[in-house]
């Protein structure tokens, strides 16, 4: 056998060993996901114009709000959505799992005439990740 063939066979054996060991140690993993509420799309929110759009326009585009609050002379329509991602890594001895939840919130502030005064939109769910390691900060 030529030296490079022996080296290649050794590497193949090592790789096979690592693969078999990996299969033996890693007994399973899982990915789960859940959402609460409809997605708040940026393009839908962009159609709401300050000083122009009325309450009926907002409701026609986004549906009925999840919450209505009266504050500082404004009627505030709140829309929210939650996204949950759960990942589990199941080894023979130890299991790790982690669930991350983030929310998107949209506030539409209407003046006394029912016209949009301000729109406040925050999207956190686009930064939501699947993670299994439960010990980091």
């Amino acid at each position: 056998m030529k030296p490079y063939e022996a080296k290649g066979a050794g590497l193949a054996r090592t790789m096979t060993g690592i693969f078999v060991l990996g299969l033996a140690v890693l007994s399973g993993c899982s990915f789960s996901r859940g959402t609460i509420g409809d997605e708040l799309k940026k393009e839908d929110v962009a159609t709401i114009k300050k000083g122009e759009s009325a309450r009926t326009d907002v409701v026609a585009k986004l549906g009925a709000p999840d919450r209505i609050v009266q504050a500082n002379g404004h009627e505030i329509l709140q829309y929210y959505r939650y996204d949950i991602k759960v990942k589990g890594l199941f080894l023979i001895l130890v299991n790790f799992s982690r669930a991350n939840i983030k929310s998107d919130d949209l506030y539409v502030l209407l003046n006394k005439d029912g016209i949009v005064d301000d729109v406040v939109f925050g999207k956190r769910t686009d930064r939501l990740e699947f993670q299994f390691w439960p010990f980091d900060d």
């Binding site: 199941f90 080894l91 023979i92 001895l93 130890v94 299991n95 790790f96 799992s97 982690r98 669930a99 939840i101 439960p134 010990f135």
Partner: peptide, 8 residues
Amino acid sequence: GFATFSRL
């Protein structure tokens, strides 16, 4: 399994 560590 022997041990489970979970976080939410």
